[in-house]
């Protein structure tokens, strides 16, 4: 393996492990906002995409990526580019990401937003007690990507990731 290729493996692993600052149970790779990592002779190029256009976490994510690269490869300059197309969708969240959201008490998005057959949504299950007896309190929640729900069985409120 060439030195560049060896460094590339470490850098990719480090960047993929950066956590989302507002959803610290998932990495930026889990969330599907990491679009690419390229290691060149003197530069590491990272491409990310925002979940929502106004996502205020983008600047923190950028800083965290720079720090993650510097920790494993301090010799290279880091360039973080933001792309808009194709627009991010909740379909881009990985299976592992969906599992980690659910494990943290956030109801994951259901079904695909990109055409094709759509599963009939019977109900949103409470991530705490599993009851299907839940209701939406507010379409808009604690961050742009979530809505606020409540479970009528255990009375606990919970966040739900909105399909986008």
């Amino acid at each position: 393996m060439t030195p560049v290729a060896a460094a590339a493996v470490d850098v990719r692993v480090a960047v993929a492990a950066v956590l989302d600052p507002e959803l610290p149970m998932v990495t930026i790779e889990d969330l599907g906002i990491l679009r690419g990592v390229t290691v060149e002779d003197e530069t590491v190029r990272v491409v990310i995409t925002p979940t929502y256009a106004g996502c205020p976490a983008m600047e923190a994510i950028r800083a965290d990526i720079e720090a993650a690269v510097a920790a494993v490869d301090p010799s290279r300059r880091v360039v973080v580019d933001t792309v808009l197309a194709p627009a991010w969708s909740t379909d881009d969240i990985t299976v592992e990401g969906l599992r980690r959201l659910a494990a943290a008490g956030i109801s994951p998005p259901l079904g695909s937003t990109r055409g094709g057959p759509t599963a009939v949504r019977l109900s949103v299950r409470c991530p705490q007690c599993g009851s299907p007896d839940t209701g939406e309190l507010s379409r808009f929640g604690s961050t742009a990507c979530k809505s606020l729900w409540v479970c009528h069985a255990c009375s606990e409120p919970f966040d739900r990731f909105k399909e986008l």
Partner: peptide
Amino acid sequence: EEDVALGNIALDLLGQ
């Protein structure tokens, strides 16, 4: 909840 909703909508518009 409406504070949160209008704040979120405003944030989306600011992003645009």
